[in-house]
Write a protein that binds this DNA or RNA. Structure first.
Lengths: 177, 177
DNA sequence: ATCGCGGGAGAACGTTCGTTCTCCCTGGTG
DNA sequence: CACCAGGGAGAACGAACGTTCTCCCGCGAT
């Protein structure tokens, strides 16, 4: 097994485990078992758990935003499509909320690499929304709705929060015309 | 020191430490040191850390909701006052987001006592908003805005998120008239 | 004064976890 | 075939943590 494949398998295992159970309750041994990559190799690729966590967050950020971007683009960049995508996401069987918000809950401002990844993710999403609606205030309001819907859907296990936020977003969009 | 005072001091220490640093990274020794209550007494009052955590969340829930309720009542139960209260909360120097959302990030659905406390808190807040606006759909939308603003204010350290959510709430309220 | 007991301080125990080390096998090279 | 660099499996190590245990003191009852 070469380094590239080991990296890929490690990130896949880390994402599955960290997202499902939280970072702190997953040991490096669990990552080794699920990935099939030896501990020695693991520590060659990611010298510490912090490095693995940062890499997990950054790869998840990119996949998550790409999925959202492509879905919305296929709907002619309609801002309301964002909330339809949220509904789809919330309905996935292993949905457990925003990985970045959850990690913030676990680490707060303590771990610098983690905090940087969280900030970067939220900044990128906000910038995307601003491009989508071309109105910074409105974009910020939609962002708040997105985050709130995600948190509540995760806690309640109810994808319907996406519909609530969508209706609010529709009202906000209509008020700007 | 009697049991009642020990309980009070333990809960105060637990809340300070758990909220500031997260539950998992605070050991029972730290709670003992800050509270000045011996370990023996600690385990008499709270037989396990889980019990202490559940008690922490439940006392925090009650204080938090009472503070919100009283503030909004003093403004004639104006729903927008909710967001002014949020701004005040976000501006506190030790603000670190919603304790319940953070705990959800740490424990997910794993710890039953914790999960129950989280559900209870969110249900109570939602019920309060429904009483305030007498329109369930609108209440749910405002709830989403509240949660989103809280998450973003915590991550960015910016109390201004309350103003963004307030503006959105004003638009939603106006649209219902 | 003596006894007994509840409580304080903190050592101790067993487990878990991040990280490193040991041992052995493999496979390519001369 | 001899050799050795590298990697796999997992033991080992040191720290941290939840929980329990030991030891001792002080105080109320007899």
């Amino acid at each position: 097994m070469n380094t590239a494949e080991a990296t890929e398998r490690l990130l896949e295992a880390a994402e599955d485990l960290f997202y499902a159970q939280g970072v702190q309750s997953v040991g490096m041994d669990a990552v080794r078992s699920r990935s099939g990559v030896s501990l020695k190799r693991l520590y060659q690729v990611f010298p510490s758990k912090d490095d693995l966590v940062a890499a997990y967050l950054n790869t998840r950020d990119e996949r998550w935003r790409r999925s959202l971007r492509e879905f919305v683009a296929a709907r002619g960049d309609d801002p309301l499509a964002v909330f339809d995508w949220l509904h789809k996401w919330f309905s996935e069987p292993d949905f457990r909320g925003c990985a970045f918000v959850n990690s913030f809950g676990e680490f707060g401002t303590l771990a610098p690499g983690v905090a940087a990844a969280i900030h970067n993710h939220k900044d990128e999403v906000r910038a995307y929304l601003r491009r989508l609606v071309a109105d910074d205030d409105l974009a910020n309001q939609l962002f708040s709705l997105m985050e709130g819907a995600t948190v509540l859907a995760a806690i309640k296990g109810d994808p319907g929060e996406a519909g609530t936020a969508r209706a609010a977003a529709a009202t906000l969009l209509a008020a700007r015309r």
